[in-house]
Design a protein around this nucleic acid. Structure first.
Length: 262
DNA sequence: ATTGTGGCCTGCCCGC
DNA sequence: TGCGGGCAGGCCACAA
């Protein structure tokens, strides 16, 4: 479940290679290119270019390349089972919901970069690489979102708050585990329509998003939240002893406390 | 316009 | 022992 936290770990790892030049870029699995069906030869344009920096917006990792003749951006999306390997090593050893097996057969894209080997390894091929992805300007980033930004993002919408938090066109970076953790911490039920949230609740929610992302980044991943162990009918809420409830919201499994989340 | 649904992809685990 | 069904969720195409 790479959510923005895991993607940020990948970005920091790749950032070590800033200054290196691309010897070759190979699409190893045609399904991994985005937009779907795009030509695999596209990636040869970065060959010879230098990695001049990295950045991240939500779950999108951007590798910025340049040479005398121009610039190009290589975008990585990791889906839920995607890893970034550098010289065979991933900064995340065990990915929640991914198979513990780990085989080169799942390598979808590779970059030979200044003598290093950078690979997108993705069991289920839900991730992708994209040349010059859209910047995504205007979508607030979860790790830094303010009350005003969240309020604007929710404006004119009525969908359940969990569904809104998962919607990458509304707020960038949260996945299923982070969204459940944020709502559990904030005491908000996932089914609450966003147009029923008071300004005060929205402000508290924005603060909670930043706090949760910051804290779990320090702890080590999206699966280190206080509510993670409560994703079961056997569990009782560790805050109020309420019973845990499971619903499908926004097409995803929501685990939440039937007592303190309202 | 927004919101909801189903499908894609693969491997694991359960019950029969 | 094998097999089918359910599940995991990020993202997209499509329907309402």
């Amino acid at each position: 479940m790479p959510e923005l936290i895991e993607v940020e770990y990948y970005r920091r790892d790749l950032d070590r290679l800033v200054g290196a030049r691309v010897d070759a870029a190979h699409l190893l699995d045609a399904r991994a290119v985005r937009p779907k069906g795009g030509p695999s030869a596209l990636f040869t344009v970065i060959e010879g270019m230098e990695l001049v920096g990295t950045s991240r917006h939500g779950k999108l990792l951007r590798a910025n390349f340049a040479d005398e003749n121009g610039r190009a951006v290589l975008g990585f999306r990791f889906g839920m089972t995607g890893r970034l390997l550098i010289d065979g090593v991933s900064v995340i050893d065990q990915l929640e919901y991914a198979s513990p097996r780990n085989t080169p057969a799942w390598d979808r894209f590779e970059l030979l970069l200044g003598g290093h080997h950078v690979v997108l390894r993705d069991q289920r091929c839900l991730g992708s690489v994209e040349l010059d992805p859209l910047p995504g300007n205007g979508v607030p980033e979860a790790s830094t979102i303010t009350a005003d930004e969240l309020s604007t993002a929710f404006n004119g919408r009525r969908k359940p708050v969990k569904s809104a938090l998962l919607d990458q066109s509304i707020i960038a970076g949260l996945g299923n585990l982070l969204a459940d953790e944020v709502l559990w911490q904030a005491g908000l039920g996932p089914l609450r329509p966003v147009d029923t949230l008071s300004p005060r609740e929205i402000a508290a929610l924005s603060t909670q998003i930043v706090t949760t992302v910051t804290e779990l980044t320090a702890r080590g991943g999206s699966n280190t939240g206080d509510s993670f162990s409560l994703r079961s009918y056997d569990a009782l809420c560790s805050r109020c002893s309420g019973s845990m409830r499971r619903d499908v919201v926004g097409g995803r499994t929501a685990w939440w406390c039937s007592t303190h989340q309202a």
